[in-house]
Computed example of a mutant assay.
Amino acid sequence: MSQQQTVLVTGGAGYIGSHTCLELLTAGYQVIVVDNLCNSSAESLKRVADIVGCSELPFYKLDIRDTSALNQVFSQHAIDSVIHFAGLKAVGESVQKPLSYYDNNVNGTVSLLALMQEYAVKQLVFSSSATVYGDPQTVPIQEHFPRSATNPYGRSKLMIEEILLDLHTAEPDWQLAVLRYFNPVGAHPSGRIGEDPRGIPNNLMPYVARVAVGIYPELAVFGNDYSTRDGTGVRDYIHVVDLAKGHVAALEAFRRPQTPHWLAVNLGTGQGYSVLEMIQAFEQASQQSIPYKIVERRAGDVAACFADPRLAKTLLAWQAEKNLLTMCEDAWRWQQQNPHGYS
C-alpha cells in the first residue's frame, strides 16, 4: 500500500471479524475495532495483536446503534474505510426475536451509514450472506440469481443490501462491496483464534468439534431425505482465513480505477459437501469417532447451497485456497487448545 489506510471494523472481535483484523494488519492496514461483545470476546483481539506482533489494537466497546459513542470514534480517528460485521446472526433465534434482529442489524447499519456520510467516509465492505438467495432454484448460485429470504436474519441482510444499493444510486461516489458468505468454518492455523459460540452452537463445525472433544455425546443430523448424494444437506464450507482475505481483497479492489463502485460477490469455494462428508473429514482430521443420529429436518433448511465463485476472482482477484481437510484440522486444533473458547 502506498499510504497506510485506517479501517474501522465493526464487530471486529467476533469470529470472522477477528480473523479479518489479523489479515488487515498483516497486509499493512491500521485497524480500529468497535464491538459490543454480545457474542464475542475482547480476548480475541489481544491474541490477534500477539500473533501479528503489534501493540494492542484500538478497541471501543460500544453498540453501533449508540450514535454518540460511535461519533466519538469517528471524531478521534481519520477513518478511510469501514468493514461492517456487527450484527446478530442466528437463524433460529431470528425467527423467535425478529424485532431484535431488525433493530440490531438494520437500524445499526443505518446509524453507521449516517455517521460515515457525516464524516465523508464512503468506502464500505459489508458482511452479507448466502441466505439472501433463499431457497435457490439451481446450484451453483450466481450473483444475479433472484434474492429472497426464508427467515428474519436473511431478510435483515437483504434489507441492508437494498439500503446500500439505494445509497449508491443516490450518491454514486460511495464504494460499496457486498460479500455474500457461504459457510465459514475452521480457525487460524496457530490455534489461537477461532469460533467461540455462546451456548449451544448453531453451526455444524463447532458442534462437530465439541462432539469430537467429548463435550456433547452426539451430533443431530437434520434430515437424510434430501435429494442430495447421501440425503443430507449440502453446503459450501469456506475456511475463515480465506474468507478474511476476501475482505482485504475487496479493499484492494477499491484502489483499482476499473473496479465498479457497487459490487456484490459470493465468497465460497464452489464445492458443496454433505453433512456426512463433513463428519467423515472431521473424523479423519481429529482421529476421533463422531457419533450422530438422524432427526427431523429443520424448518427453513434448503437441500443444497453452494457458490459459483468466479465473479470474486474477476472483480477481487481472490479465490478460496484451503480444502475441507485443512478446515477440519484447523478447527480441531482450535478446539483442543481452547476447549472452553476464550474464557
Rank of each mutant, 00 (worst) to 15 (best):
Q4M: 12
Q4Y: 08
Q5N: 11
T6P: 04
T6E: 07
Y15V: 12
G17H: 04
T20Y: 03
G28Q: 09
Y29D: 09
V31M: 03
V33D: 01
N39K: 06
N39V: 06
S41M: 09
V48W: 02
V48T: 06
A49G: 04
A49E: 01
D50R: 12
I51W: 00
I51Q: 01
V52S: 06
P58F: 05
K61V: 13
R65L: 10
T67F: 13
S68N: 15
A86T: 08
K89V: 12
V91T: 08
V91D: 06
S94I: 05
S94M: 06
S100F: 09
Y102F: 15
D103G: 10
V106T: 14
G108P: 03
G108C: 05
S111Y: 15
S111I: 09
L115Q: 11
V121Y: 03
V121I: 15
L124Y: 03
S128M: 02
Y133R: 04
G134H: 00
T138A: 14
V139D: 02
I141E: 00
E143M: 02
S148D: 10
S148K: 12
N151L: 01
P152G: 04
Y153T: 01
Y153N: 01
G154R: 01
G154Y: 01
L158R: 00
M159D: 13
I163R: 11
L167A: 09
L167M: 14
W174A: 03
Q175G: 04
L179G: 04
R180V: 05
F182S: 01
V185L: 11
A187F: 10
P189E: 14
P189S: 13
S190A: 08
G194T: 04
D196E: 03
I200Q: 14
P201M: 13
P206A: 05
V208N: 07
A209D: 14
R210Y: 05
V213Q: 11
V213W: 08
G214R: 06
I215D: 07
L219I: 13
A220Y: 14
V221M: 02
Y226P: 04
D230R: 03
T232F: 02
R235P: 00
D236E: 07
D242F: 06
L243E: 10
L243T: 11
A244F: 04
V248K: 01
V248E: 03
A250V: 09
L251K: 05
L251E: 02
F254H: 03
R255N: 13
V265P: 01
G268Y: 00
Q271W: 10
E277Q: 15
E283I: 07
E283S: 08
A285C: 08
S286L: 02
Y292E: 08
Y292W: 11
K293W: 09
I294P: 01
E296H: 09
R297K: 11
R298V: 06
R298G: 08
G300C: 01
C305R: 11
F306G: 00
L311I: 11
L311M: 15
K313C: 14
L316P: 00
L316D: 02
A317F: 11
W318Y: 13
Q319N: 15
M327S: 13
D330T: 14
D330A: 05
W332Y: 15
W332G: 01
W334D: 00
H340C: 09
